[in-house]
Amino acid sequence: MVFLFTFPGGCHNKVPEQKTDKIAVVISTLNNPWFVVLGESAADRAIELGYEAQIFDSQNNSAKEAEHFDNIIAMGYKAILFNPTDADGSVLNVKRAKDAGIPTFCMDREINSRDAAATQLLSDSFTGCVKLGQYFVQTMNKKGNYVEILGLVGDNNTWNRSKGFHSVVDEFPELKMVAQQSADFDRNKAMDVMENIMQANADIDAVFCGNDAMAMGAYQAVMAAGKADKIKIFGFDGADDAIKGIAEGKITATVMQFPVLMAQKSAELADQYIKGKRDFKTKTPVEVVLVTSENVSKYFPAK
């Protein structure tokens, strides 16, 4: 079964009359506002550049993603703006598109290949979490018990964030990780995971979550347990509710990513490819910014 999400207006009244080349936007999941912004920004920019754009929702399902690629190849799209479901599992899809003469431009999430994609624009998650880790250490005064809630285990961003964080925090022996579990970047799962962890560990001082959706889920669990004043919550993404949470003292810090920039730039690179350019860097990291109570005013209320 193929689930096709048509970008509002993308295939109807906004289609330019003279140029009908199509660009596909394949997103890992539209069940997360952050990825909706990524997908819609990419489609918007593609339309501005004169293309027809359609968004495909993979629903975090690699089989569904493969079906989308089958359809995209069959339907003669000129390029794919791609947010993969799995760093390894998605490589073959990208290679199939390449073999069919369709370039793929990865956005935010990485695939483990040097040559399958035309290029990959990726948030510099590792560096962001090094900064977050340093702030974590300072905020915790170098000691305390903490929990780590990981994202999707098949996504490189999950491990780049975790690795950046641990490259700092593991240097401080009095900071002890008492639990580490995955919640698949999902808010509800993170709430459940945090509730279970708190039942097994009464003494928790902080939670580091691999994205803001999970940070908000963890906050809900912590608040329900009456521990919101004791447990510090750290996230990643710069989602609106997390930024608001920092301004209100609910969340301690997050790392701001720039999905609109990544999406727009990817669409522009696809346009350049279609017009003949080929010499792209394999990967381009996009800088991220640590957001805390000290600088949240720059990002709140609206980015």
Partner: peptide, 19 residues
């Protein structure tokens, strides 16, 4: 050069090793 690495993880592991 980032292009010499399979992925960001490998690239970042080099920083950890340099540090």
């Amino acid at each position: 050069d980032i292009d010499d690495f399979l992925n960001m993880t490998s690239f970042n592991n080099v920083s950890i090793a340099i540090n």
